[in-house]
Amino acid sequence: MEIVLMVAGICLFLMMIPIMLRIIIGPTAIDRIVAVNIIGTKTAVLLIIIGALFDNVSMFVDFAIAYAALNFLGSLAASRYFNRTRPAYGKGSSMEAKGS
């Protein structure tokens, strides 16, 4: 059973790599925030799997709850901050560049 959990954890980590690529190449800021949000959610899941591998789930579950709640608060604050305060494409948004 440990082998299954280890394979699941390694697969979760390997599938996070394309999402990290999206963090690097994401054209807009909100793309990057979405990718960070997904990685945070998956880290909460990965913490439970690590706890099951160490036979200490009761401790790691609390970490996972805190991580999921803080991840939600972080993405909420980022969405409020980037709403109408920043242009989406860095310096000078697309609408400004297009403006006649």
Partner: peptide, 27 residues
């Protein structure tokens, strides 16, 4: 409880980020 929390919060944050991107003018 973690599963229920994520089921409630993940669509909410996706909706808010989508709304922020729409207001920012992403085409």
């Amino acid at each position: 409880a973690i599963a229920v929390l994520i089921m409630l919060t993940s669509p909410t944050s996706t909706h808010l980020l989508m709304k922020a991107g729409y207001d920012d003018g992403i085409e």
